[in-house]
Amino acid sequence: MSDSASQMPQNYLNQCFAAINSQIQLQLYATYIYLSMAYFCNQDEVALGFFALFFLRQSQKWMERTEVLFLLLTERHGSLTLGRIADQDRHDWMDGLMAMECAFHLEKTLNQSLLQLYQMASEQGDTYLCNLLKRRFLQQQVEVLKEMGGYVTNLRQMGAPENRLAEYLFDKLTLADSTKEN
C-alpha cells in the first residue's frame, strides 16, 4: 500500500488527505448526533429504550469506521486535522419518528460524502481507497439506508407520531427484534 501511495501525485495525495479529513469530521459529527438521539430516546418521558440502543449502536459503528480512516491516513503518512465538531443545532426531537427521520437524512448525507470520496479516488486510479470504501463503507450504507427507510415508512404507516402507541409498539417489537439480531 505504501508503494502505491508513494507513486501517487502529491497534489492528489493532498486532495485525498483533505477529503478524508472532511469525511472524518462528518463521521465524528454523526457519532455526536447519534449519541444525542440515544440520550433523547432514553429519557423517562420518552421511554423508547430500543430506539436509544439503535442510535447508540449507530454512533459506535461510525466511530469504528472513523478509526479505519485514521489508520488510512497513518499508512499514507497524511496528517489528521481535527477541527471542532460542528455545534449541533438544538435538536428538540419531539418523538421517535422525528429522530429516525433525522437519522435517515444524516445517513444519506454520509452516503453522499462517501460516494464523492469514492469518485475522487476512482478518477485518480486509487484502487486501494476504492476497495476500502466499497468493502468497509458503501455496502453498509446501502443496508442502513434500506433499514432506516423501512423504519420511517413503517412508523408512518402505523400512525406515528400522532399515535404514541405506534412508536411504543415499534420500539418494543421491531427495534427489540433488530437489536437481538445484531
Rank of each mutant, 00 (worst) to 15 (best):
S122W: 06
M100C: 09
A99D: 00
L114G: 03
T109A: 13
M98K: 13
A103K: 08
E107Y: 06
D95F: 06
E101Y: 05
M100F: 08
D95S: 14
L110Q: 07
N111H: 10
Q112G: 12
N111K: 10
L114N: 00
L106V: 04
Q112I: 10
M120N: 01
N111P: 02
A103Q: 08
E107P: 04
M98E: 15
L114S: 03
T127C: 09
M98L: 10
T127D: 12
N111Y: 05
L115S: 10
Q116W: 08
L115G: 08
H105R: 14
S113M: 10
S122K: 14
L115V: 13
A103N: 07
G96S: 00
F104Q: 05
L117G: 03
Y118G: 05
L106R: 02
D95T: 08
L110M: 12
A99I: 05
E123Q: 06
S113T: 12
E101V: 06
L97V: 10
G96W: 02
E123G: 01
Q112D: 14
L114W: 03
C102Q: 13
Q119F: 08
D95H: 13
T127L: 09
H105F: 10
E101F: 04
E107L: 05
L114V: 04
H105A: 15
D126H: 04
D126V: 01
Q112S: 14
G125P: 01
M98W: 08
L114R: 01
E101K: 13
Y118S: 06
L106H: 04
T109Q: 14
K108W: 07
L106G: 01
T109V: 15
E107G: 09
D95K: 06
Q116M: 12
A103G: 04
C102F: 13
F104C: 03
A121K: 05
Q116F: 11
K108P: 02
S122C: 12
H105V: 13
L97F: 07
G96C: 06
G96N: 05
